[in-house]
Nucleic acid binder design. Structure first.
Length: 582
RNA sequence: UGAGGCGUCGUCUAAGGGUAGGACGUCAGCCUUUGGAGCUGAUUAUCUAGGUUCGAAUCCUAGCGCCUCAGCCA
């Protein structure tokens, strides 16, 4: 045995190396960490400070999880800090409702900001002072043009803009006007404060960008204290600087804004100048990530809410039963780079299975019940059979008793009257293993005389095969799961599937046209084994041979509800599909 | 056709002048009282064309393609 002290472990599911392990031979895992390590090595920074800056105007989704894992993960890895900061500069879009949800999501993901919760709106005072500083330096002016005029005069991608007629107002005049803007002397939209940079810049962002607008809206934090609000480009960089952020990590679409980020910080009296670094946001196949589209799904009632288990929101994933560990594992596996990418949802599903496989107790549940009567088993007899919760390593999770009796339910899919080749489950005259119990042979098929539907199977067991193979050496290929009809609980099972039926929803037509009509199949009369009567909402199980499931909050005593987190890999489905295609 | 960015297996991501590697997916096999898990193996990639070099995914030149930007959104 190796000495645990000499063999420090790194948990691949977190990015926290054991203390002292981050030696010089340890390579950074992405280009951002490369930059950070260089800054640490060169002495540019003695510590690392990042931030996660959501706007409280919607729920967090799996794309945010990538950013959260990056920002908080880097802070954790390098012994630094990561602030939670709300980018709340647009009162007409934001709401406290989202603030609470965001915090719950970040905590659930496994990260913490201690006492470093900030709001950009807390900086409205300093921000205003910095704006006056720019005015006094002749670097900002009040513009009376309408939004339309400003737009027209901004020029186009190939043509330079035209200077505003108010561009050369004196600092004194601008200061007076700006103070009166703040004092509420002018109507909404009548004037803005603009940076005086370069109307001919090839980068449109630099053509005298708007810094402040007049907007009489109630702010969720500052109430009616302000009628002017700063814009993102002015606010974000200064907020970063005021918080002593060293590396301001954001997504690619802000790359074009970086010159403005740097311009503002170069011209106001802030204590430091953080470095903005951009990475590619997460795109996932078979899903949509835009706030607008997610909001539409909720508002149009196409899903049951922000926490609908089909949604890519953190709330939805959590309700579905996804673990924070699996999500973190996924965020690590996808990596961080600058090129646009679309990650296959199969990788996410793989991470789910990898994590759940080691932690979910195995139980039996029959989704679409088919009754089986064992003709050679005495009526009224019940055997309590031992079944391991984790058959690959039974001591790990222990055992429960599973009742066995004359009448069972098996999965309808596990019986075929005319089985194709390679189908080795139950069929007339064929024998299978009942999990944890006996060999079962199908003697007769009972059908509804009117419809021809199979209503029941009459079967027999081999009484000498309880947890052992038959003495005559005959082999059975299939093992199927079952529940005792008299002891099972009725349950609702929600077969959660991909929300969209195409890899890139909305690419060829409106994204709503791409919704998967079978994204949540509800089975109201599934049967689950007796032991599940003690399950609690949020608990996760593997329904053997079927998939991983989590008990939903909609569960009621005597009528549990389960969401499918992810199915098990189904190689029979692959075979059947291949056979059908021949 | 302005500016900024990006092009490596089907997908995501390494290699930063010296064996193009890993993961997911796919395919084949082994194993199995979960057609799960696990184990073996296979498959397939440097956008193009020149150049520098003993040697180029990497450096240079010229192309090509994709993404972002013309909110008083972030």
């Amino acid at each position: 045995m190796s000495d645990p002290k000499s063999a420090p472990k790194t948990d691949p599911r977190t990015d926290a190396p054991a203390a002292g392990e981050a030696g010089p031979e340890q390579k950074p895992r992405d280009f951002i960490r490369e930059v950070i390590e260089e800054d640490l090595r060169s002495g540019k920074h003695a510590r690392v400070a990042t931030r996660f800056p959501p706007e409280p105007n919607g729920y967090l989704h799996i794309g945010h999880a990538k950013s959260i894992c990056l920002n908080f993960g880097i802070a954790r890895q390098y012994g630094g800090t990561c602030n939670l900061r709300y980018d709340d500069t647009n009162p007409s879009k934001e709401d406290v409702e989202y603030v609470d949800a965001i915090e719950a999501d970040v905590r659930w993901l496994g990260f913490d900001w201690d006492d470093r919760k900030y709001y950009a709106s807390n900086y409205f005072g300093p921000l205003y002072q910095f704006a006056e500083e720019l005015i006094q330096k002749g670097l900002a002016y009040v513009d009376d043009q309408s939004a339309e005029e400003i737009r027209v005069n901004r020029g186009t991608l190939t043509q330079p803009g035209k200077p505003s007629p108010h561009r050369d107002r004196t600092p004194a005049e601008n200061l007076d006007l700006f103070r009166r803007m703040r004092a509420g002397e002018f109507p909404d939209g009548s004037r803005v404060l603009r940076a005086k940079i370069d109307m001919a810049s090839p980068n449109i962002v630099m053509r005298d960008p708007t810094l402040y607008r007049i907007r009489r809206a109630h702010h969720h934090r500052t109430g009616d204290a302000w009628c002017i609000y700063p814009m993102y480009d002015f606010t974000h960089c200064i907020s970063d600087a005021l918080e002593g952020i060293t590396h301001s990590i954001c997504t690619l679409e802000f790359e074009i804004n970086r010159p403005l980020y740097d311009w503002v910080l170069d011209h106001v009296s802030v204590p430091c100048h953080p470095r903005q670094i951009e990475f590619a946001r997460l795109n996932l196949t078979y899903t949509v990530m835009s706030k607008r589209k997610l909001l539409q799904l909720v508002q149009d009632g196409l899903v049951r809410g922000w926490d609908d288990p089909r949604m890519p929101t953190l709330a939805g994933l959590r309700r579905r039963g996804v673990t924070a560990e699996a999500l973190r594992l996924f965020c690590e596996r996808i990596g961080v780079a600058k090129r646009d990418s679309q990650v296959e949802v199969e990788l996410f599903e793989h991470c789910l299975r990898e994590d759940l496989n080691t932690r979910a107790r195995r139980v039996m549940a029959v989704l679409r019940p088919l009754k089986v009567v064992i003709e050679n088993y005495p009526e009224g007899q019940v055997e309590e059979l031992d079944a391991a919760y984790f058959p690959d390593d039974p001591p790990k999770m222990g055992y429960r008793k599973v009742p066995f009796s004359r009448e069972l339910y098996i999965e309808r899919d596990d019986f075929m009257e005319e089985p194709p080749k390679k189908f080795f489950r139950l069929a007339p005259g064929r024998e299978v293993r009942l999990r944890w119990a006996y060999l079962l042979k199908c003697e007769r098929v009972v059908k509804d005389p009117a419809t021809g539907e199979i209503v029941e199977l009459r079967c027999s067991i081999d009484p000498h095969t309880l947890n052992q193979n038959p003495a005559d050496g005959r082999k059975v290929k299939g093992t199927i799961h079952w529940v005792s009809a008299a002891h099972a609980l009725e349950a609702e099972v929600r077969l959660v599937d991909r929300l969209f039926k195409v890899e890139r929803p909305g690419e060829e037509r409106d994204f709503l046209q791409d919704l998967n009509p079978a994204s949540m199949e509800v089975l109201p009369a599934a049967r689950v084994e007796r032991s599940l009567s003690e399950a609690a909402a949020g608990e996760r199980f593997q329904f053997e041979r079927v998939g991983f499931f989590a008990m939903d909050a909609d569960s009621r005593p005597g009528k549990p509800v389960f969401n499918r987190i992810v199915s098990l890999k189904d190689s029979w489905a692959r075979i059947a599909k291949a056979e059908a295609g021949k």
